[in-house]
Design a protein around this nucleic acid. Structure first.
Lengths: 338, 338
DNA sequence: TCGAGTGATTTAATCGATTAAATCTTCTTC
DNA sequence: GAAGAAGATTTAATCGATTAAATCACTCGA
C-alpha cells in the first residue's frame, strides 16, 4: 500500500527496504554495501525488472557512457571493418556507440559533433576531413576526447591511430622487385593531394633507393581510382614499354589494370605482375586473386577504442600517442613469390 | 557579478534577461515566444556557446532522441548499405543512432536491447535472430518501438521491412528461361532452413509452373554458400547433364560456379548462363560481371527509419505495416538478355 | 565506562530541461 | 472604465541517479 514512489531506484529501494543511496552503491560501489543487503537489492531489482536510467546518471555525472564514431561512409569495406571492430569493442567495454556518417561533408561532420556534445558523449573517434587545425579545435570544443583514425592530422592535440602507408608502399615495391635490381616499377596512383597516395609513392621510392637502383618509376595517375580508370591504364601499360611490375595503390585499380592487361593479350602474372592495396575481399574472391597490402582494420578499430577509453578514465596518467600499424603483404596469384 | 547559476538554460536565461521556461519555449515551442524575445535568446545562446543537455531532457521526458540499430554484422555489403542508409536518415531527422553488432549471438542481442532501454532509446530497428516469439516480447519488453528489417517474423506485433525473396527467385528464373518453355533450371541454393533460401526457391517454382513446364529443377545445396563451395558445384554441373541455366541464391556462389564452369572448359554465357542474387559490388567489378537480383538496400533502410519514427510520433494514428520491397534484375554479361 | 575506530546506511543537495498552472500585460469592446 | 480575452512570461514541481557529509550501530582497548 505504501505509495510507489517514482519508478527508478526508489522503487527498488522500497522493495528491498533500504534507501536509494544504498541501491546506487550496491550497483556502482558494491564494496560499500554489506553482502546480505546487496543480495536483497539484487533480488528486488530482478523481481521488479528494474532498468536503470542512463539519462539521470548522465545528467548528474556530466558524461554519458557513450562513444561517437564519425566516418565518411560505411559502404566501403575498409570503414565497414573498422566500424564493426569499434562497435564490438565499445560494446564489450559497456559503452554505447553513436554512429555518424559524414559523407565527407564538413557541415554534416560538425552537426554530428554537436549532437555528440548534446548527448554528453564521453569521447569520439573520427576519420576527420579537411585537416585544418581550427576545424579540429572546433570539434574538440565540444569537450569530448577525440581520437583520430585513418587520416591523421599533425596539429591534433590528442591520440591518433593510422596505418603506415609509406611502409606499405615500400613492401609492395620490394615484393615486386624481388631480388632483381635495376628494374623499374609502374606505379598506378591516385592524386598526390591524397596523403595516402603520396605516402605509398614515397615508400616505393624508398625501396628503389634502398637497392641503389635508378629511379625508374613510371607513374600513371588515376583521378578517381576506379576499376574503369584502372582498365584504361592497364591497356596503356600493355601498349607501351613501361615496367611490367605494377603497383596499384588500391585494389579497384589493380582489378581494372589486370582486366586491361588481359584485354590487350597479356597474362598475369606471366607477362606482368600486379600488386594492389587494401586487400578487399572482392580481390580475394574474384577470378583473379590479387596480391595486396592488407591493413589491420580490426586492430586499428580496437586500438582507437582503447585510446579514447584511456583518455576518459586514466585522466592525468594518460599520454597522447600516435600509433602507426604496420601493413601486411598478402601474396596471391597476381604477383606470386618470385 | 550576478553569480552564474548553473551552466545550462539558466545561464542563457540570465544573459537574455528571461526565465529558463522562456528559453526552453524559444527552443521547442517558438510560437509561444514573442519574436523580439526569441531573437535575444538566440543571440545569448550563440554568445555563450550553449550546448543543450539531452540527458536532462531525456530524464524529464522519459525518452531520448535516439534510435537503436541491431545488425548481425557490418562487414557484409548488404548490412553495410542498410546501416549507412539508416544512419543518414536518422541523422537527418535529428535522431542519434546507436549501433549494435550482434554477431548472431542471442546473448549479445539481448544485452544490446537492455542497453538501448537504459538509454531510453525512442525506438529500435533490428535484424532479429532466432525468430522465437517470446524472444521478441522480451525485446519489446524494453518498451521501445521495434521495427524488424530483412528477417521478418510473423509473430512480431509491429512494423517490418523486408524484400520479396519469392518474387526475386521468380524474376531470376524467368530471366533465365526467357521465352523458351519446357527447359529446367539448376538451382544452387543454401540450406532450406534459411527462410531466404526457401523463398527464392519457391519463386523459381512459381516461374516454372507459370509457364506450364514440368518441374525441372535440379537443385544443388551449398551448406555455407561460399565461393569455394560454388566452385565445386560449378565443376559438378559441368560434368553432368544438369541444366545450363543456373540460378545461384547469392553472388558468392555465382562467382564460384562461374569459376568452376570455366575450370571445366565451359564458357559463360555461351555454354551456360548464370544469375546471382544480392548484386554485390564485387560481382560488378570482377572480371566477370554477374547478372543479379539487386535488393533496394538504401530504400529498405530509409523505410525502416520512417516506420519507427511514425510509431514514435504518430501515436494512435499509427498502424503497423509490413513492407515488402520488390527486387530489381540487373542484367550483365553472365546472363545477358536472351 | 568512555572514546576511538570501523563499517553500514541514510540524508539531502544536485545535475538541467520540461511543462502545467499561475501571473502579469495589453488590448478589446460595450 | 470595467470585464474579459488573448498573448507573453514566470513560478515551481518533476524526472532518477549520484555522492559528500552525517548518522547510526558495533567492537575493542585502555
Amino acid at each position: 500500500m505504501a505509495a510507489t514512489k517514482g519508478l527508478g531506484l526508489a522503487r527498488v529501494a522500497e522493495a528491498a527496504g533500504v534507501s536509494v543511496a544504498t541501491v546506487s552503491n550496491a550497483i556502482n560501489r558494491p564494496h560499500l554495501v554489506a553482502e546480505a543487503t546487496r543480495a536483497r537489492i539484487v533480488d528486488a531489482m530482478n523481481a521488479l525488472d528494474f532498468v536503470p536510467n542512463r539519462a539521470a546518471a548522465t545528467l548528474r555525472m556530466g558524461s554519458n557512457r557513450l562513444l561517437g564514431l564519425v566516418v565518411p561512409e560505411i559502404v566501403n569495406p575498409f570503414y565497414a571493418a573498422i566500424t564493426e571492430a569499434i562497435a564490438v569493442e565499445s560494446g564489450a567495454r559497456g559503452y554505447a556507440l553513436a554512429l555518424c556518417v559524414s559523407h565527407d561533408d564538413p557541415v554534416a561532420e560538425l552537426r554530428h559533433f554537436e549532437m555528440l556534445a548534446e548527448h554528453r558523449a564521453a569521447g569520439a573517434i573520427a576519420v576527420p576531413l579537411g585537416a585544418s587545425a581550427d576545424r579540429l579545435t572546433q570539434l574538440q570544443m565540444v569537450g569530448t576526447h577525440l581520437v583520430l583514425i585513418d587520416r591523421i592530422v599533425d596539429e591534433h592535440n590528442g591520440c591518433s591511430v593510422a596505418m603506415d602507408d609509406v611502409l606499405g608502399g615500400r613492401m609492395a615495391a620490394e615484393h615486386l622487385l624481388g631480388s632483381t635490381a635495376g628494374e623499374g616499377i609502374a606505379l598506378v596512383n591516385g592524386p598526390h593531394t591524397i596523403p595516402q597516395c603520396a605516402d605509398r609513392r614515397r615508400g616505393v621510392m624508398q625501396a628503389l633507393h634502398a637497392r641503389g637502383a635508378r629511379d625508374e618509376v613510371v607513374e600513371f595517375e588515376s583521378p578517381h581510382m576506379t576499376v574503369e580508370e584502372g582498365f584504361q591504364i592497364g591497356r596503356r601499360i600493355a601498349s607501351t614499354n613501361s615496367p611490367r611490375r605494377i603497383f596499384c595503390t588500391n585494389d579497384q585499380l589493380a582489378l581494372g589494370v589486370i582486366r586491361g592487361l588481359r584485354d590487350s593479350g597479356l597474362t598475369v602474372p606471366i607477362d606482368a605482375r600486379v600488386v594492389g592495396f587494401g586487400d578487399l575481399t572482392l580481390a580475394t574472391e574474384g577470378d583473379t586473386q590479387i596480391t595486396s597490402i592488407a591493413q589491420p582494420k580490426a586492430e586499428m578499430g580496437r586500438a582507437a577504442v582503447r585510446k579514447v577509453l584511456s583518455e576518459i578514465t586514466d585522466g592525468d596518467q594518460h599520454r597522447h600517442t600516435v600509433t602507426m600499424f604496420p601493413p601486411e603483404l598478402v601474396v596471391r596469384n597476381s604477383a606470386p613469390l618470385p
